[in-house]
């Protein structure tokens, strides 16, 4: 990044290559459609390149890069807020199914359908990206204690939703 800060665009290619899979997964997990991920990736790269001078090499790079990516994504979400006409709102179905036994890969879509976007984001940053609460706090502009509390609530909400879904599944099986 120090080479990038001096204006070396070729040095940035290494950074962009390393970040690409990470940002792809980050955007896809946080609900960005496939068609828009390319734009968001390019915007993030451009911002990182321009802000390279502000990067402090004593701090870890990934939380800083994902903070930039998160801000780009929030701007995108703000500009593309999905809206449904009130008359059509009843027609929107909840097609998320509960994860069955052995289908552990379905837990993230299930969580996304059941939790608020903020709670889901925190869960993803903690367990998906493997960040510490202090790093998440710096990324999201909260205190570390607040992040811990929100994570605890998100886990509790998810556990409760899973429990309810499991109960309904067993009830269905009995019938």
């Amino acid at each position: 990044m120090q080479a990038v800060a001096t204006g070396d665009a070729n040095a940035f290619r290494v950074v962009a290559e390393a970040l690409e899979p990470r940002l792809e997964r980050f955007f896809s997990q946080l609900g960005v459609p496939h068609a828009d991920r390319d734009d968001l990736y390019q915007d993030t790269c451009l911002r990182l390149y321009r802000a390279a001078g502000a990067y402090d090499p004593r701090r870890p790079f990934l939380p800083w890069a994902l903070t930039v990516a998160r801000r780009v994504m929030l701007n995108w979400h703000r500009a593309h807020k999905p809206t449904v006409a009130l008359e059509e709102a009843d027609g929107v179905s909840d097609n998320q199914r509960a994860p069955g036994a052995g289908a552990e890969a379905d837990i993230w879509p299930f969580a996304r359908a059941r939790l608020t976007s903020a709670a889901y984001e925190l869960l993803w940053l903690c367990y998906g990206e493997d960040f510490e609460p202090s790093e998440i706090a710096a990324m999201t502009g909260r205190t570390a204690v607040h992040v811990r509390v929100l994570l605890h609530r998100a886990r509790a909400a998810l556990a409760s939703a899973l429990e309810k879904a499991g109960e309904t599944d067993t009830l269905k099986k009995r019938r």
Binding site: A18, I107, W108, Y127, G128
Partner: peptide, 11 residues
């Protein structure tokens, strides 16, 4: 949650 994290693909 940790186990269900999708793996990273190549760039």
């Amino acid at each position: 949650l940790r186990q269900a994290v999708p793996s990273l693909r190549s760039a």
